[in-house]
Simulated scan of single mutants.
Amino acid sequence: MILKDEVLTEEGLAPAHVGRVLLIACGALAHEILALKAANGWSHLDLQCLPAKLHLWPEKIIPAVEEAVAENRGAYETIFVVYADCGTGGLLQAACDRLGVEMVEGPHCYSFFEGNDAFAARAETEFTAFYLTDFLVRQFDAFVWKPMGLDRHPELRDMYFGNYTKLVFQAQVNDPALDAKAEECAQRLGLEYERRFTGYGDLLTALAAVAR
């Protein structure tokens, strides 16, 4: 009889969690992670998303990740945190080191979507760029316009964005509707528009390594 917490392998019985990977991820990355799972057949990767709005309070990301790891540790062979530093000042990395889990490298998702090396190479000449990903274009009002109070006080726009010169849309997929919306976002912010197709960048590389 095989117990519910065991699986039959070529070598015999093994705990059911063997080979299973849990991705604890920012909710802003859910669409991209699910797309990569489907495209690559990574059925052994499970996804648990934390609220995307935690980015508004980076200090809340760390306890949320710690709680998720503690709740799931016994059910998975590997847990991987799909966050970059995301404004935690290195504290998320320190927490992951303490918990014995790995995380995506990079300062933020704009960097790892572009590729951390490529993003760093542009940093000195592109410090007046404001970035949007596919997710942020879709959720521009909820994550940019309203939290900054621009829906109530549009006159604040130039105060917030006066030092920016352009909006860079880092496109993960080719979607004309998203392109049009991103260009509209640039117009609303009074910025020049640049579309840059990045694909999934280092996110794909990181998840492929975990999947192996």
Rank of each mutant, 00 (worst) to 15 (best):
M1C: 11
M1V: 13
V7Y: 04
T9C: 12
A14L: 13
A14Q: 14
P15I: 00
L22W: 07
I24H: 02
I24Q: 04
A25K: 05
G27E: 10
E32Y: 04
I33M: 02
A35Y: 11
A39D: 07
L45M: 13
D46G: 02
K53M: 08
K53L: 13
L54A: 12
H55K: 10
E59Y: 09
K60H: 10
I61G: 04
I62N: 10
P63N: 03
A64N: 12
E66Y: 02
E67D: 12
V69Y: 04
E71I: 01
N72M: 07
R73N: 01
T78S: 10
F80R: 06
G87D: 07
G87H: 10
T88G: 12
L92R: 07
Q93N: 08
A95L: 11
R98E: 12
L99Y: 12
G100W: 05
G100S: 06
V101L: 12
E102W: 06
V104D: 12
V104H: 09
G106P: 10
P107K: 14
H108T: 11
C109D: 07
E114G: 14
G115N: 07
N116A: 03
E126W: 02
F130Q: 00
T133F: 05
D134P: 01
D134N: 00
R138P: 00
F140T: 08
D141I: 03
V144N: 01
V144M: 01
P147Y: 08
M148K: 13
R152V: 13
H153P: 02
P154D: 12
E155H: 09
M159S: 05
Y160T: 05
F161L: 02
G162R: 09
G162W: 08
K166P: 01
L167T: 04
V173G: 00
N174W: 01
L178W: 02
L178M: 09
A180M: 10
A180V: 03
E183H: 11
E183V: 11
C185Q: 06
L189K: 05
G190F: 04
G190R: 07
G190E: 07
L191P: 08
L191T: 08
L207V: 03
A209P: 01
